[in-house]
Design a protein around this nucleic acid. Structure first.
Lengths: 245, 245
DNA sequence: TTATCATACTGGTCTGACCACGATCAGACC
DNA sequence: GGTCTGATCGTGGTCAGACCAGTATGATAA
């Protein structure tokens, strides 16, 4: 794609950034590797050092690279915390993005649970079971409860044994972390939510145990839909009429 | 001029970045606002211009700000597409697992098609229709055929009207681009694949038109599964016994 | 009033320098 | 011979001033 014009057409910052991007994407620069010095990079690409520093700083805020004072620049393992930075900024005005990110999380998790049904091993089952138990134990605690919820869903993705899905889910879930707290406050407003949380997660767990992808997917999807419904009611101010039907 | 390094604790880049972050989070800098010039910012914070540029560039890659040549730096509306860079880099480092990335793509696309069933408008339908027609027209061409295939799937995601999904799909599809060519070569080896390609995409299209999320998801999922099956056979060297199964 | 042009300002970049500190290895010391 | 020490070199971190190429604006000319 656009990787090939790296050394030629672009100029200045773009040139350096594209150069490094190419190496990073191609795999010739792996996590742990140390880049050549800023000065060498500058002369190599025919630009000045400040420009090189712009590019390195850009990669730094993207979490791709780490500049170590008086040591050098090393490639790091992508860190999700970058997304939190972005998210903090993004949320300053545009709160509607949350729903969008949530859609992506649902996507990843539903695919993950399908794979989990195929690939999960005993250890995965046990992890899910522990997370499920934790959800029951911490149902009345806001923070711990949210944590337990998060752990359960993470366990699903881990059970899929797909690193890509794990990374994506971790990133997306991280973005949603900020809203977790407010979401858990719903539990106080909607007493019926407690049984929903416990039963729903148990049903999801059972579907995975049964290694039934379709059921697991459907159950998980329904789980998210109900969560949305609760949130919708909270906005409307409709307090717990769920039992009435 | 005196150097006031101990002034604010942070220094250099951090100082500028923190300064701007404050204004951005506090809301005193809103989208559309134009920042003061780099030179003014530099003298204001007691740093040099290159440092200011590092900070501005950092905000640029985060999608918070846009540097316009000879115009100035303006605050932009946060855009999810900045995550594209991050995900591209992050996923590239585990590129050995193409199949893994494919799973993520399936995840995104299946979720997208569900949303598309709800949100697609006439323009989306028309785009899908055009892409579908293109697939039929280019069925015998390797490159154009692959492009048409990609366009169709992209049209699905676009129809979901979710920027996050679009960005993620774009990143993942980009990573899979390298394998596209080899995949299209299968069409030559498996004549039956032509009807598969055309009919399958048409069925997917019809499901979206019918606004039937379940059917669309299932059909799309099956579409991917069949593609996998063809690839598996190609590896085994089993040439076109598809009609039998 | 309108059209043209000079000027001041913007970002984009380069050059060359200084600092403080880590790494390294030769030489001194035990 | 082995260990310690210290000078040198390389690194990132930063600065100051300069030039370029366009834009925006206002003053001047038509």
């Amino acid at each position: 794609m656009e990787l090939k014009r790296a050394a030629e057409g672009e100029k200045g910052f773009e040139k350096v950034f594209a150069f490094l991007r190419e190496r990073l994407l191609a795999g010739s620069l792996k996590p742990g590797d140390r880049l050549i010095s800023e000065r060498e990079l500058a002369t190599l690409l025919g630009v000045s050092r400040p420009i090189v520093r712009e590019a390195l700083r850009a990669l730094t805020v993207l979490g791709i690279v780490e500049i170590r004072d008086r040591i050098g620049t090393v490639v790091t393992r992508p860190d999700v915390s970058v997304l939190n930075d972005f998210f903090t900024f993004a949320l300053a005005q545009q709160a509607d993005m949350l729903d969008d990110v949530m859609q992506a999380r649902v996507a990843i998790e539903c695919q993950a649970i399908r794979l989990a049904c195929e690939r999960a091993n005993i250890a995965d089952f046990e992890r899910l079971q522990r997370a499920l138990a934790k959800i029951g134990e911490t149902i009345d605690e806001a923070d711990a409860g949210g944590m337990a919820d998060f752990e359960f869903h993470r366990a699903i993705v881990v059970a899929a044994h797909s690193e890509t899905l794990t990374v994506l889910h971790g990133s997306l879930a991280g973005l949603l972390t900020h809203s977790h707290r407010s979401r858990r406050e719903l539990v106080q407003a909607f007493p019926s939510m407690k049984t929903y949380l416990i039963d729903d997660h148990r049903r999801i767990f059972e579907a995975v145990i049964a290694r039934d992808p379709e059921r697991a997917d459907a159950t998980l999807r329904k789980h998210f839909a109900i969560g949305d419904e609760y949130r919708r009611r909270a906005i409307v101010g409709d307090i717990d009429k769920t039992a009435s039907g």
